[in-house]
């Protein structure tokens, strides 16, 4: 007799537990305003990434096409996987001395792991995180970027 009742209580609790589950999905079905999905390509205009978002490494230039990079190469050594290459050039200073400056700051975005060690180690705060995240390209060579713009020079008051 005991097992006879158990048979029916089992059915009762089973049905009850199933209905509780159906209540959850049923509630979401009838409350479409709870949907959190972002309509991505449509909201491109309004989509704002967080200020600290690590999209890519960029080198900010001011309005005179000047940056803060001295070409010291600390970022190159800090990078764990060789995504940064610094090509230096020597120029003649007005006082006759030769000075090393940055020729090309090459950044391999395809190799970057976004660890942030280059930015943290930069002594002159020349490179920062950019918030651009749409990096998809058809040609992999486009992911190798030269961060200093052509013809740019260093801001005068930066000393090594």
């Amino acid at each position: 007799m005991n097992s006879f009742f158990k048979y029916f209580t089992d059915i009762f609790y089973a049905v009850k537990s199933l209905l509780t589950g159906m209540k959850v999905t049923g509630r979401y079905f009838f409350s479409p305003w709870e949907i959190v999905t972002q309509q991505y390509p449509e909201n491109r205009k309004t989509l704002k990434m967080y200020d600290r978002f690590k999209g890519e490494v960029i080198m900010p230039h001011n309005e005179h096409n000047e940056h803060r990079c001295t070409g010291c190469g600390i970022c190159e050594t800090a990078c764990p996987n060789g995504s940064i290459e610094i090509l230096q050039a020597k120029i003649d200073m007005p006082d006759g001395k030769k000075k090393r400056i940055i020729d090309k700051h090459i950044y391999h975005l395809d190799m970057c792991t976004f660890c942030g060690l280059c930015i943290k180690s930069c002594p002159s705060e020349a490179i920062v995180w950019g918030q651009e995240f749409e990096h998809a390209v058809f040609d992999r060579s486009k992911l190798t970027k030269i961060l200093n713009k052509p013809g740019s020079s260093i801001i005068k008051d930066i000393v090594e």
Binding site: Y28, F29, I35, V36, T37, Q39
Partner: peptide, 13 residues
């Protein structure tokens, strides 16, 4: 569409 709404998403659109 039904399963999308039950799963709190939009579904094909």
């Amino acid at each position: 569409k039904v399963c999308a709404f039950m799963q709190n998403r939009v579904g094909p659109n």
